[in-house]
Amino acid sequence: MSTPSFSVRRPVPWLPGLVVCAGAAAVAWAVHWLIPAIPLLTAAVVLGIVVGQVPVARPAVVGPLAPGLSLSAKRLMRVGVVLLGLKLSLGDIAGLGWVTIASTVAVVLISFAGTFWIGRLFRLPGHQPLLIATGFSICGASAIGAMSGVVKPKDEEAATPVALVTLCGTLAIFVLPLLWHPLGLDAAQFGHWVGAGVHDVGQVVATAQIAGAGALAVAVVVKLTRVLMLAPMVAIASVVERRRQVEGDPAAKRPPIVPLFVAGFIVAALVRTFLPLPAVVTDGADTLQTVLLAMALFGLGTAVRLRTLVGTGWRALVTGLISWLLIAVLALGAVWLSAR
């Protein structure tokens, strides 16, 4: 008589960390709902950084939660970047006029090159100069996640730029409105400045809404023009990384010329531009994108080690602050150029 056999399902290693990330995203949403001035994604990053510093939580973060945190920080980030393309309408961007578009692109390129050079000047390790330049010049932590998908940095290399872009973007929410009237800007010009100079989309909304709906509309469209630069910048980095790997090891697996998630981002932007999507679809995609990015940024935040950052990361901090000032000045110049 044969004994029945029972199959035991193996536990899914990434599930606990993924559940924690989802719970953290809910907490971040609650913080944003209670204090609207705090962007949801900023709250998610800060919450991850705080959890990563708690001694009691450290064994879980580097142990059973690690697979899920890594999955969120990498794969969910890429899906969120694809959905970000559904916010882009090329028609809205074209409505800005060629002067505004050209000056916005110039701000991205100059600030990217300037920040990268500053990071190299301060001898930041690994891919940090590239990641900081990407996050500060394009669209904050989302851009850092997209670029990380190509260059495959160590977790701490990506975590430090995310912490810096969160810090400086949060500072912008409070500092830029104080300079609005002293600089003699009207509401639309202030919105233009915010869209061209603040890093993350949520931080742009939190800063520009102070000047009213008109300023917010201008800020979001200018910001999405910067977001549009994400695809070519990541594609160029992929080509450079591919060439570097070929020179270092011809047999090594090389990244694609255009990463799949970048192609998805472009397709999503084209769909948003040429197809009349119902509001329920765009709103649903926007909500899903926000949730995925909040989970991803919480996962990235848990990799930040403040003790290490304070002890050895002063060069990265100085790089971030100089870049923040550089972008704010360049963006202000773009506003004045467009107003002439």
Results as ranks from 00 to 15, higher is better:
residue 146 A to F: 13
residue 177 P to T: 09
residue 40 L to I: 09
residue 225 T to C: 11
residue 100 T to K: 15
residue 312 T to Y: 06
residue 87 K to P: 08
residue 253 K to R: 14
residue 155 D to I: 04
residue 168 C to I: 09
residue 23 G to D: 05
residue 177 P to E: 11
residue 225 T to Q: 04
residue 26 A to Q: 04
residue 94 A to L: 13
residue 46 V to S: 04
residue 28 A to D: 03
residue 312 T to M: 09
residue 225 T to A: 06
residue 6 F to M: 06
residue 64 P to T: 07
residue 311 G to R: 15
residue 188 A to M: 08
residue 154 K to S: 08
residue 279 A to Q: 12
residue 125 P to D: 08
residue 155 D to M: 03
residue 321 L to A: 10
residue 49 I to E: 07
residue 331 A to Q: 05
residue 240 V to S: 01
residue 260 L to Q: 04
residue 319 T to G: 02
residue 51 V to G: 00
residue 312 T to N: 10
residue 34 L to Q: 08
residue 296 A to E: 03
residue 157 E to K: 07
residue 192 H to Y: 14
residue 152 K to G: 03
residue 97 G to Q: 07
residue 200 D to G: 00
residue 203 Q to C: 06
residue 74 K to T: 14
residue 237 A to E: 04
residue 219 A to R: 03
residue 237 A to P: 00
residue 69 L to D: 02
residue 321 L to Y: 00
residue 154 K to A: 13
residue 71 L to T: 14
residue 96 L to C: 06
residue 197 G to E: 11
residue 116 F to Q: 11
residue 336 W to N: 11
residue 335 V to S: 03
residue 236 I to S: 01
residue 118 I to H: 00
residue 32 H to G: 14
residue 311 G to F: 05
residue 59 P to K: 02
residue 155 D to C: 06
residue 302 T to M: 00
residue 157 E to D: 09
residue 15 L to I: 14
residue 309 L to H: 04
residue 159 A to Q: 06
residue 108 V to A: 01
residue 309 L to A: 08
residue 73 A to F: 04
residue 75 R to A: 02
residue 175 V to P: 08
residue 257 I to S: 09
residue 223 K to Q: 11
residue 97 G to A: 06
residue 25 A to N: 02
residue 165 V to N: 01
residue 56 V to G: 07
residue 311 G to I: 01
residue 303 A to S: 15
residue 193 W to N: 04
residue 289 Q to A: 15
residue 6 F to W: 11
residue 211 A to E: 05
residue 306 L to I: 15
residue 318 V to A: 13
residue 253 K to C: 01
residue 68 G to C: 08
residue 87 K to R: 15
residue 15 L to E: 02
residue 153 P to T: 10
residue 171 L to G: 09
residue 271 V to Y: 14
residue 57 A to N: 01
residue 285 A to N: 00
residue 249 D to Q: 08
residue 90 L to D: 00
residue 190 F to M: 06
residue 332 L to M: 04
residue 147 M to D: 00
residue 114 G to S: 14
residue 66 A to Y: 01
